[in-house]
């Protein structure tokens, strides 16, 4: 065997088939994640990469980590990502204009350099012996073996990481908390604003949409007694979104006198 290559032993055929089937798919999905214009597509492709990695973990005798990968990453983390995506702007796609000139080619060249360095490093590294495998370490079961390590050798790291989790939860709560600038307007304040305001036009409440209109959809304005449309009858949210139909076509035209 080559004196420099990392000769760590070969796997059995089924695992090789699994690897050569799933590894290209994982790389393609990762590249797709990189190039997808919409963030939602990136999230779905990343979920696929994570599932592939979970299968690899299970194939490598890391049963517990494989299940945790699916439960924590594709279950919790990716759902959190999608939730925030829906919250923060699902339609905001990346602009393709470079802000720093030549940043993209430079970063891709640097990445090829880094990747080449890592690949050649792995190719030239030598362990001096063949892979041991986890059969001996997993004799009592993978979960039991991990628990033994976690609560004896790594118990201090385990405690520290619990403190980290609590700190992260607190930090998220502090960041998500927003202080109210004004006090909440109650019924009394609303009543005062309605009757002591400049005009009493809306004292009886705003007209609701579809009243005496030609359609009863929420985006069609109500008609006033003189036949003109009442734009205040439509929710301001619809107006802001631009979902409102032009109200002029719904106005009643005065009958022409020539008919008599």
């Amino acid at each position: 065997m080559l004196n420099l290559a990392l000769h760590v032993g070969a796997t059995k055929t089924p695992e090789a088939v699994l690897f050569w089937f799933l590894a290209p798919l994982a790389v393609i999905a990762a590249l797709g994640m990189l190039m997808a214009k919409k963030a939602v597509h990136s999230a779905l492709l990343l979920a696929w990469v994570m599932i592939t990695l979970a299968i690899f973990y299970i194939a490598q005798d890391a049963l517990f980590l494989g299940i945790v990968q699916i439960v924590v990453y594709t279950g919790a983390v990716m759902m959190l990502f999608l939730f925030i995506l829906m919250l923060v702007g699902v339609d905001s796609s990346d602009s393709l204009v470079e802000n720093i000139k030549g940043q993209r080619p430079a970063s891709i060249a640097a990445a090829i350099g880094m990747g080449g360095l890592m690949v050649t490093l792995i190719g030239r590294a030598s362990l001096g012996r063949s892979a041991v495998g986890l059969v001996a370490a997993n004799t009592n079961g993978n979960v039991q073996g991990l628990a033994e390590q976690l609560f004896t050798k790594y118990v201090w790291a385990f405690e520290v990481i619990s403190a980290l989790l609590i700190t992260a939860a607190l930090g998220a709560m502090v960041l998500a908390h927003s202080q109210k600038v004004r006090s909440r307007t109650g019924q009394r304040d609303l009543s005062i604003a309605r009757f002591r305001g400049d005009s009493l036009a809306s004292a009886a409440g705003l007209p609701s949409s579809g009243v005496f209109a030609r359609h009863n959809a929420v985006d069609v304005p109500a008609l006033l007694p003189d036949g003109s449309a009442a734009p205040t009858s439509i929710s301001s949210v619809l107006k802001a979104r631009g979902d409102m139909i032009e109200s002029a076509i719904f106005e009643l035209q005065p009958k022409e006198e020539e008919e008599n």
Binding site: N142, L150, K153
Partner: peptide, 10 residues
């Protein structure tokens, strides 16, 4: 897996 212990998994 190469080293045959569970430290990496932890």
């Amino acid at each position: 897996r190469i080293n045959g212990n569970l430290d990496g998994q932890v």
